[in-house]
Design a protein around this nucleic acid. Sequence first.
DNA 1: CCCTGATTCGC
DNA 2: GCGAATCAGG
Length: 179
Amino acid sequence: MNWTDERVEKLKKLWSEGLSASQIAAQLGGVSRNAVIGKVHRLNLPGRAKTGGTQAAARPKRPAAPAPRPAAAFAARPATQRAAARPAGAGLSKDEIDAVFDGAADQLPVPANANSIVVPMSRRLELTQLTERTCKWPIGDPLNEDFHFCGNESPDNSPYCTYHQRLAYQPSAERRRMR
DNA sequence: CCCTGATTCGC
DNA sequence: GCGAATCAGG
């Protein structure tokens, strides 16, 4: 794809709105997130603010020209070590908190015979967090604030998780019995 | 492993 | 100029 004026314009717009490079790449289409990031740099657009301290601490420039990658010079790596310090009484992780709130989340078009069906907890993903392997089953009203996607893992290349797969595609017989 | 942005450098 | 490969970090 070419960086037409219009595409560049859209890139600038979305970037300034804070969308991630991968998301912008997805909206533009035909380009990778790397392409987007590269373009952002070439355009001298402001990068993302680094929260707090860890600024780009002078990187070693990259191991001298690995042009013909003979898979050799990548043996030893400086073992980075940090004291993974978590405050003694650290609270719940984001995931743990989310899990709790997901209790009454689903507003799915649940089948009448849902009693026996286990409705999986959704990960409440935003549109910007969907990937090739996340369930894209929408939950809630798109016009509503709490609109989100299932986001559970979906089998290779499938748009839905195993649960929503059944809702998306049902044998006519079963569907008829359901109504 | 999923993701993020940053950088280098062959093309 | 472009962007894959790579790095560093969450």
